[in-house]
Amino acid sequence: MDDILTIENVGLTYQSAAHETEALRDISLRVKEGEFVAIVGPSGCGKTTVLSLAAGLLKPTAGSIRLGGKEITGTSGEVGYMLQSDNLFAWRTILQNVTLGLEVQKKNTPENIEYAKQLLQKYGLGDFIKAHPRQLSGGMRQRAALIRTLAFRPKLLLLDEPFSALDFQTRLSVCDDVYAIIREEKKTALLVTHDISEAVSLADRIVVLSARPATVKRIYTLDIDRPTPLKRREDPAFSGWFDKVWKEVGA
């Protein structure tokens, strides 16, 4: 299948008044259509930086990044970014939040709004279309945030520790929900997390980054064939994978 995202020999150095920080060095990575790729690595190594590059929020100082074959030159609206906090706008209703991307991209046609509504219905937020974010639980808000990124049909989803603000119980179930939604809608996703069990339970492949400046240490292709993250966690192979990745991150 085709590559959605191609990162080739990318380096990124942050400049600031006090010093320069080399965050990424010679990173190469491909994400194929329909794939779920997780990036793990020690904290502060440059995981978020990789996503910012893929979103076009930053320009690489070396190498090249292509999205669907085209060089990324800036933000294009072709990726959906989901962050740790849901970042729902308190003054908008859930439907208005979910259609934000459509509005911004002037694609808020009746059909597209209908699609957003259907997503909300399908994933259990149908009764909350007119509610405001504060009336929803943390897990529901995170689901709404995901639907917001899906509504404008981005080529690629970028997820930056999307579950880390949730408590453990909610995290497991929202993780299941999000995984189901992404699979069901046949989306390609690049997930950043420092929670290795999360990566192992979700991803097709896991990219382990080294400490700063981040390089690709190793890429694992997982073979746990289970339908949901929770089921994966129960699989005998799970702990084996966990140990491998964990050792690699720590090494």
């Binding site: 933000t75 990726v79 970014y81 970042n87 911004v104």
Partner: peptide, 14 residues
């Protein structure tokens, strides 16, 4: 205004 919200909108191409 929260920087992350600005990033979010930028990533949508705003």
């Amino acid at each position: 205004c929260d920087k992350n919200k600005v990033f979010l909108m930028q990533s949508m191409g705003a």
